[in-house]
């Protein structure tokens, strides 16, 4: 069986949606060119037509608003932002409009738009071409935020997002595109049924990640196994609304919590995960204080020298765990 890459899994999710749901259409910049979105949307315009795969003017704000508006009118649009940094032009349509459309009008209307936003960093791209702002969006009630980490989820979370009656931000990370796995047949799952998932069992420490940081956590924990450290690894998958139950159960067992996040430390997703666990475990449950590995609180540097210090990686995580814990 030929293994599928993460980026091909996204492509197969799009293909499934376009094939089975005539109300699905996609708009965004660079959709007719592999330059912007890698192989994740390759040839979709040729297969499904340029009416349904719309490469747009340089107008993030209008395009996102248009996707929101079309979603209110019975369509299932996906708006693609090839780089999350540029999506900030569209904040009004996301935060003020889509997230609140159901609530403000007493539930008579809803905006089931999917906003695909790509984290694209490294390679000396610098402060405005590197951001991972999932925590911002996870702060907003009314908008669901998902971050697929596995190849399987890259496809399946996309399908669940587009079929959700609520607005969803689907965040994929270019650093995951070369991951491979065998894909199971597609089974549609409602997004509200999806929660954080345990990817590796263990009983000494619970490590939580999302997106690329889950991959780091998983790889690091596998190496730690040979040192005799038994880590349990969770992938958040759905950041908002955040369901902490399975992680809480895990921490009650392991009594240690480490969160790895690809965002900044201050007011970040790691803070939210730690708080939601700490406020729910009995006093003296934790053997060690809860800890987090995040980006340092500075913009992404362009310098290659600084980049090495800026991003977490497997070795740093292993060292951090070896230095911080005595199992």
């Amino acid at each position: 069986m030929i293994k599928t890459t993460y980026s091909d899994a996204i492509l197969s999710g799009f293909d499934y949606l376009l094939k089975n749901y005539p109300e699905v259409f996609i708009l965004g910049q660079g959709l007719w060119s592999p330059w912007y979105v890698g192989n994740t949307m390759k040839n979709l315009d040729k297969k499904y037509g340029k009416d349904r795969i719309i490469d747009t003017p340089v107008s993030e704000s209008a395009c996102t608003g248009a996707a929101v508006g079309a979603s209110i009118c019975g369509m299932k649009p996906i708006v693609v932002h090839p780089r999350m940094d540029f999506m900030l032009y569209a904040m009004d349509s996301i935060v003020n409009q889509a997230a609140k459309w159901s609530y403000m009008f007493g539930g008579q209307l809803n905006a089931p738009v999917t906003i695909r936003s790509i984290i694209n960093r490294g390679g000396s791209q610098g402060a405005q071409h590197s951001q991972a702002l999932h925590s911002w969006f996870a702060h907003i009630p009314g908008i669901r935020v998902v971050m697929p980490s596995t190849v399987q989820d890259a496809r399946d979370l996309l399908i669940s997002s587009v079929l959700s009656p609520d607005p969803v931000i689907y965040i994929d990370d270019r650093w995951l595109y070369e991951q491979t796995a065998n894909l199971k047949p597609i089974k549609e799952t409602p997004l509200n049924a999806l929660t954080p998932k345990c990817l590796k069992k263990g009983d000494q420490i619970t490590i939580v990640g999302s997106g690329y940081s889950t991959l780091l956590a998983l790889n690091a924990s596998k190496k730690l196994n040979s040192d005799g450290v038994r880590a349990e690894v969770f992938d958040l998958r759905v950041l908002n609304p955040f369901n902490s139950k399975s992680i809480l159960d895990s921490v009650l067992k392991t009594k240690r919590l480490l969160v790895i996040d690809s965002g900044w430390k201050s007011c970040g997703m790691a803070s939210e995960v730690i708080t939601s666990i700490v406020e729910n475990v009995p006093t003296n449950t934790l053997i060690d204080p809860p800890r987090r590995i995040t980006l340092p609180d500075c913009p992404a540097p362009s310098s290659e020298v600084h980049e090495k210090d800026y991003y977490p990686n497997e070795e740093k995580i292993i060292k951090f765990i070896n230095d911080s814990y005595y199992f």
Binding site: C63, G69, I72, P77, N96, Q97, L109
Partner: peptide, 20 residues
């Protein structure tokens, strides 16, 4: 399909409604 107090907030939404 909706009125809101953010000035111009609904203009791109109406655009999308027309696109739909």
């Amino acid at each position: 399909l909706g009125s809101v107090p953010i000035v111009t907030g609904t203009v791109p939404l109406a655009l999308g409604a027309g696109l739909a």
